[in-house]
Amino acid sequence: MIEFTTWDILRNLLLAARWTVLLSLVSFIGGGLLGLALLFARISPRRWLSKAIGYYIELFQGTPLLMQMFLAFFGLGLFGVDVPAWLAAGMALILWSAAFLTEIWRGCVESIARGQWEASASLGMGRLQQMRYVILPQALKIAIPPTVGFSVQVVKGTALTSIIGFVELSKAGTVVTNATFQPFTVYGFVALIYFALCWPLSKSSQILERKLNVAHRNH
């Protein structure tokens, strides 16, 4: 029987954690870019467009992420499309992240006083100019804390990708446990690594929220 040292276990988990970090970055950045495009559609004066994006958001917020993973991985296979686990995981997380980020940012945009829209319109600005020069710079300050806070959910959401065969931190934990028969040690390290990834993000969100609230009150 092969003997595994504590360092062997930790080293293998840290190597797998790279894929968790990479998938989290791809999902968050991809979801952010898609979410920004959906935001413009969501607050569009065209009612049908806004409503269509609203249905998209309700669909992805109202169904479990795990089910979305299964549909992305197995659903396309029904049509003869072979989807790699990493691609299905990335697609599902990007679409899921975009739905939540769109709503977070919509709330921030709508929190800007209506007078800001009217004042910028009186200067002859078009809607895109209003968003770019007046609304988004103000909404960005409000949006930073909840956006950073949501990134924690993205990191934890990557754990579900192990169900469809993507080898990230939680999947590696299962593999290492099967090889070492030391579940307490292995999953203890897995929990600590997740904590090391998520705690700085959570703390950053809290600090940013406090600073922005203080700046707002002083203003």
Rank of each mutant, 00 (worst) to 15 (best):
F4I: 04
W7E: 12
L13E: 01
A16Y: 04
A16S: 10
A17R: 07
R18L: 11
S24Q: 04
S24G: 12
S24T: 12
L25Y: 08
L34T: 04
G35K: 06
L38F: 11
L38V: 07
L39D: 05
S44H: 09
P45C: 02
R47S: 10
R47V: 12
A52I: 14
Y55D: 15
L59P: 12
F60Q: 03
G62W: 00
L65I: 12
M67L: 15
M69H: 07
F70G: 09
F73L: 05
F74I: 07
G75T: 04
A85C: 05
W86T: 03
L87G: 07
E103Y: 08
W105T: 14
C108G: 10
E110D: 14
S111Q: 09
I112G: 03
I112Q: 08
S120H: 06
S122I: 05
G124P: 12
G126N: 14
G126I: 01
L128G: 13
M131W: 05
R132D: 13
L136A: 10
P137T: 05
Q138S: 09
I142W: 07
A143T: 00
A143M: 02
A143S: 11
I144T: 04
G149Q: 01
V152S: 02
Q153H: 11
A159E: 02
S162M: 15
G165V: 01
S170M: 15
K171Y: 15
T174D: 12
T174M: 13
A179Q: 13
A179L: 14
F184R: 13
Y187Q: 04
L192F: 11
Y194F: 10
A196W: 04
L197G: 00
S204W: 15
Q206L: 14
Q206M: 14
R210L: 13
K211E: 02
V214E: 15
H216Y: 13
H219I: 09
